[in-house]
Design a protein around this nucleic acid. Structure first.
Lengths: 356, 356
DNA sequence: CTGAAAGCGCTTACAG
DNA sequence: CTGAAAGCGCTTACAG
């Protein structure tokens, strides 16, 4: 059995080991893929008629149409998309750029976009940027170069210059909260301040006074959540303790809790940060919500799988995706757009209320 | 402030509330996007020269090249991809079809594909099928219709007919373990039996005898894992207890454990199933690994975030993605391919060894 | 090294 | 309703 790195030629079926290398033949490279000219010849009509019939154009007799369709079927005709797009000037395709496939938050947004796009008869081309600014930039460029009719960027990592440059070449909508969104670019985001207030109000209603904030980035969304939380703390007359996960914040926070003088509850700027905190807390023998109540943001699948389940602020992701597509539709129709802000809600689980 | 469903026109910035509707103008629809003819005129050369210079062709004098490049830059020229692809017959694009964006397992595979594709100078177009057979079928069709040079399907949900039909139109590679992979289609998968043996051997080395299996599907991968586990149980002379999560398997398994006659360890067919089991077990006051040791499969991010951390079989996902792209490269070069099987490894965490 | 011509596979006016 | 012509923006031979 041949071995190449971590790969073997044959799998776990012992009997297959004898035929270690399974050679397989490739089809001849599209030997004479039929064009409308071939179909026209076969159907005995002109290629204009074929084109019209195939597109369901009205100016074709029933008989011609039937003959064209039959011939196309028989020859296995498939239209050449490149040619069609070259001549029509429209690709019927939109590009969707997303920061990070691993972030479950993006997924439902993309689903929403896809659903709405399908209803509009548009195809969706996904590109993924892996939180890498340069890569995002390149993908955006390639998408526009490709000739998509518009782009939806599900990311807040794109700098204003990039957004502006891209939107000069194709209609563009951003889902998220980039630092600066230039004029002419559509935007959909959630109301981070409202979400933060939901989280703190929930904790306060449970009797918590010392509610800390744990963040892991300086992104505008995290800052907006932080600002609103601060206001709430100020309004309640409580000193606002803030921790940064990038700066040993989890450790410091838990140390404070252990010392008895720390917070009794934490609002984390997203679920992953919250999950990390929860895990560390449990590792140190602290119980949630008894020793520390925790609220996350995004209500990702993770929130339901953790134990205790994670109370989290939910964004209407599917609806946000659909809204983004709707905005792109407006732009494609030559109309203006306005920023849309979705209202978050709170999903309560056992990390704040035992037994939930 | 206007309200539409869950959407408001303006966000959480109170000062913006005054300008509730932010109208924005769109750019004129590509008013005279320059072509090579414009560049040729501006540079004072023929369009053949422009084309050659832009492509970095050798037969162009340094002076001409500089003038062309300068003119292109000045006019903001961008090549028309549709035209280029129509005439060249090659799109330099590959399609990647994946079952489910939410499954973290797919992500690293896609990253591997993207890395390898980028190195080969190919762009990647993602399509996502959401575990929906009809949708997967449609996406595959559209991808091929679009004119990509080849397709990598990261899914085991595609029936043999679909694979065969697609591979007749474009080179095709599958990552995963579909029921039947037709000749001419490349394949990359992991060694499920070896993974299952890794899991059971690990549990046995910890002293476990009654190791149950929990599965959640009838997919070939799950079956292969089950078969290998069964063999190990038979070799050890132990009765193999199998549970199906779709058939109240979690409940039954935990009831058996509670009654004292059940398994002391479980091998779950993937991490999500394992996470569900672990959560339910904790909810019932059972401790892992003391009352029940659990091993998952896929070593997803989830495994590290859970408490206790989930011991899991890891697949070299990045390498598998790269291997798929390499296979596609072979097919594109007109050469044959063979099934590649990646060797899994085990990542031990606290769900089997306390303190890890 | 350079330019003029032909053509990729379609759609779009435009005569009949 | 139908066909012949022109053209989308490129690349590819092919003469100079």
């Amino acid at each position: 059995m041949t071995t190449t790195g971590t790969f073997r030629n044959v799998g776990d079926d012992p009997s297959a080991a004898r035929a270690a290398v399974v050679e397989r033949r490739v089809m001849p490279p599209e030997s004479a893929r039929p064009t409308i000219i071939d179909v026209a010849r076969a159907a005995g009509v002109s290629k204009s008629q074929v084109s019209a019939a195939l597109r369901g154009d009205s100016g074709v007799s029933g008989e011609s149409r039937d003959r064209v369709l039959a011939a196309a079927e028989r020859l296995g005709y498939r239209k050449n998309g490149w040619a069609q797009r070259l001549v029509s000037g429209r690709s019927q395709l939109i590009g969707v750029l997303l920061t990070d496939l691993r972030n479950a938050y993006h997924t439902d947004i993309v689903n929403g976009i896809e659903d709405a796009a399908a209803e509009a008869g548009l195809g969706v081309l996904l590109r993924h940027g892996r939180r890498d600014r340069a890569l995002l930039h390149r993908h955006l460029d390639e998408l526009v170069d490709l000739g998509v009719d518009g782009v939806i960027a599900v990311t807040s990592h794109l700098p204003p210059e990039d957004l502006a440059a891209a939107s000069a070449r194709a209609p563009m909508v951003v889902v998220g909260r980039p630092v600066g969104v230039p004029d002419g670019v559509g935007q959909v985001r959630n109301d981070d301040a409202a979400g933060a207030r939901l989280a703190t109000a929930h904790l306060q209603s449970l009797g918590h006074r010392r509610i800390a904030m744990l963040r892991g980035s300086d992104r505008p969304a995290a800052s907006a959540r932080r600002d609103a939380w601060r206001e709430e703390m100020a309004a309640a007359g409580v000193v606002a303790q803030e921790f940064d996960a990038r700066d040993r914040g989890v450790e410091r926070l838990l140390a404070a809790v252990g010392a008895g003088e720390g917070p009794t509850a934490v609002f984390a700027s997203n679920d992953r940060i919250a999950a990390g905190l929860l895990g560390e807390a449990l590792d140190r023998g602290l119980a949630a919500p008894e020793d520390l109540a925790v609220v996350g943001y995004d209500n990702t699948e993770l929130a339901g799988l953790l134990r205790p389940g994670l109370t989290s602020v939910d964004q209407p992701r599917g609806a946000m995706g659909r809204a983004a597509m709707a905005q792109l539709g407006e732009l494609l129709a030559g109309r203006g757009v306005q920023t849309e802000v979705a209202a978050p809600s709170l999903v309560v689980r056992a990390s704040t209320v035992a037994g939930r």
